[in-house]
Design a protein around this nucleic acid. Sequence first.
DNA 1: CCTCCACAGGAAGCGCAGGAGT
DNA 2: ACTCCTGCGCTTCCTGTGGAGG
Length: 401
Amino acid sequence: MQKNIFETVVQNESIFLDRNIMSQHYTPNKLPFRESQIEEITTILGNTLQGKRADNLFIYGKVGTGKTVTVKYVLQQLEQFALQNNSSAETAYVNCRTHNSKYKVLLNALRKFHPDENFIGFSAAFVYEKLLEYANKSKKQMVLALDEVDKVKDVDELIYALSRGNDELEHGSISIIGISNNLLFKDRLDARTKSSLCEKEMVFSPYNAAELKAILEDRVAKAFKKGAVEESAINCAAAFAAQETGDARTAVMLLLRAGELTDKAGLGKVTDAEVKKAKSKVEEEIIFNMIKTLPSQQQLVLYAIASLTVNSKGVRRITGVQEEGVLFSGEIYDEYKRIAKSLEENVISSRWYRQYINELEIYGLILATQSGKGIRGSTRLIKLGFEAKKIKEVLEGEIFK
DNA sequence: CCTCCACAGGAAGCGCAGGAGT
DNA sequence: ACTCCTGCGCTTCCTGTGGAGG
């Protein structure tokens, strides 16, 4: 009898109890190492429960430091408390990456307060008035959390409008929590909006390895079956993430991938080895995505480097030492021109080609050094940052499609 | 020593798309 | 719907650096 193709998937015992807990979108109900921040925000927002306006708050911190979850957690607690105690605090959370203008932000916030009405198509002024009216009539203390505020095109006007709104209100108030992972963003603001938004400020610092470990242990206990993840594997994932960014998201992601690899191989237990494999897999994904999103001309330049390297034309003796895969800037440009012509693509100038080389170096796809003493005057020695064969394969898929 | 080659990278300018202003 | 402006990708031109060779 023919086997159904899904049979193997179901049959294979998984080491996961609940994979969702390792997903990016999961919000844990416990936030270790953020107690002090939670307390601080709680104190600031506490005003709203006494019918007063809370100070505006600006939160800064790198990716994966728990800004969003912490704020969401406090907001949720605030609403719950207000509901139980008949207080007039109400909150709205807006992600400004998708709602990236003053109008869209206001519209989205309004939707939270009037869930069954549709305001699409109304003017910005109307939406703004409606928002104020809601606060005024129901005497609400509103808290608006604006995640990734830096993405809003007209932030100055948005913040200005919201804080000016407070002067017009007889009852109720509006307070803003701005969240950003861009520290330079603050300096881009108009002086007035800056002092308005940053009445209170907070910084979320990256987690260190020990903290990451504790966070991971917490998640693993719920997401995996008992004993399915070795302690050293957790240490390993925590160490990798701490070393790079201190980002909890990548640490969790690393363990998720390691778990998937373990399941696939039917090993039943996640060890260091799987975490290491997962790490190189994740890195590979990042590199491939980077290559795929490169402009096509830049892909051709990279392809020229890869194919020259594969054809082992790059073995050079440099200051006596033989080094593999090192190419001269000039020969790469020649090869690039040849390839571009054969594909009937237009050929970029040598100046812009150099610009591309510099960018590729910044991305870490190639390593480039100034020749210094001994070779061809001043030129650059260029070497691929990763395995030439693989890069060449990926590019062939991209270029010749 | 001078000149030429091979290359790096700054400055200016050009054509274009897309957003802002009216 | 219209123009106007701005930023971006790119070319052209140029100056500078350092080895190779007469």
